[in-house]
Simulated scan of single mutants.
Amino acid sequence: MGELQGKRVLLVEDELFIAMHAEEILRDLGAEVIGPANSLREAWALTESESFDYAMLDRNLNGESSDELAQELRRRGVAVIMATGYGHIASDRDLVVVSKPYDENMIAAAFRSVMKGQCLDSE
C-alpha cells in the first residue's frame, strides 16, 4: 500500500505476537518502525532518543495506561493512534482509536485518518 512510505512510527505494544503482527503491518505500509517498546519505561526512553512522525500505542501496557504518554506525544505534535482490546475509549476528538484484533486495512485507515487530521471515533 505505501501510505507510510518514508515515515517513522513509534510502536508500543506489550504482547509479543501482537507487536510482531503490528510491526509487519507497519512495514508493509512502508513505515520505518521504532521499537516495538513493550513497556511504558521503554516507550518513554524511545521518545527521548528517537524521532518519529507517528505513534501507535497499546492503551494497556502490563496494567499501566499509556494515556499520559499519548498526551505528551500529542503535545509535541506527534499524531497518535491508540490500540485497545477493551472497546470504545472515551477521549477527546483528536485521538484515533483502533480496536484489537486489527488488520492491515484497519491500521491503514487509522493512519489515513490521522494524516487528514480526522478522528475515526468522532460522531
Rank of each mutant, 00 (worst) to 15 (best):
N60V: 05
G2R: 15
E104R: 13
Q118S: 11
L29V: 13
V9Y: 02
D28V: 06
E64T: 03
L40S: 02
E123A: 15
S49V: 11
E3C: 15
E50I: 07
G63N: 13
L46H: 07
M1N: 06
A109I: 09
V78A: 04
E123F: 14
S113G: 10
M20Y: 04
S65M: 08
S66A: 13
L29E: 04
G6K: 14
L29I: 14
D67R: 15
V97F: 08
Y102W: 15
R93G: 07
G30V: 10
V80H: 01
E64A: 11
V12I: 12
V96H: 01
S113A: 15
S91P: 04
S39Q: 03
I25H: 02
A90E: 14
M1G: 14
S49R: 14
H21E: 08
G6W: 13
K116D: 03
D92M: 06
H88R: 15
V96C: 12
V97W: 07
G2N: 15
A43K: 02
A45I: 01
Y86E: 10
R93T: 06
G63R: 06
M106L: 12
A43F: 02
V12W: 01
Q5E: 12
S39K: 02
E104V: 14
R41D: 04
N105W: 10
R93Y: 07
S39I: 00
E3W: 13
A108Y: 08
D92G: 11
A45Y: 07
G117K: 13
G117N: 06
A19S: 11
A79E: 04
A109G: 08
Q71S: 11
A22Q: 03
N105L: 15
I25D: 00
S51P: 01
G77M: 12
G2H: 13
L57I: 00
D92C: 09
L61V: 00
H21A: 09
R27I: 10
I89Y: 08
L120M: 14
D94E: 10
L29D: 04
A31C: 09
A110I: 04
A79R: 07
C119G: 13
R112L: 11
H21W: 04
D14C: 05
Y54S: 02
A22F: 02
S51H: 12
